[in-house]
């Protein structure tokens, strides 16, 4: 079977970035210490997951579950915004977005 590379501090920091989670140095250290043993424990799956075995993504196989193109009840603007940390002009107010136009 394939040997998985170990997960170090840099990897944890990169994953946290990708998952948009601010971690303290202590958290990074701790997770880096744990993840190898967890991944080792689960990596046994690749022992039996051979080419000829198909993947199952849904426990009960179904296809073609559709809805008809008919309008249903909507939320009111008030309901939509009721839980918003900040709202303005009927819209969700979010901090400045950097990067893409």
């Amino acid at each position: 079977m394939t040997l998985m590379p170990s997960i170090g501090r840099d990897d944890v920091a990169r994953l946290a970035d990708l998952a948009r989670i601010q971690l303290s140095d202590e958290e990074i250290d701790r997770f880096a210490g744990e993840f190898d043993s967890i991944m080792d424990a689960v990596a046994s799956v690749s022992e039996v997951a051979t080419e000829d075995v198909p993947a199952t993504s849904h426990p009960i196989a179904m296809t073609n579950v559709f809805r008809e193109d008919v309008v249903e009840n909507t939320l009111t603007q008030e309901q939509a915004l009721a839980g918003a940390p900040e709202a303005q002009d009927g819209r969700f107010a979010v901090p400045q977005i950097l990067g893409e136009e």
């Binding site: 009927g90 969700f92 107010a93 400045q96 136009e101």
Partner: peptide, 10 residues
């Protein structure tokens, strides 16, 4: 987007 202080989302 550049120079905006915040954004509103619909």
């Amino acid at each position: 987007i550049h120079g905006a202080t915040h954004s509103q989302v619909d």
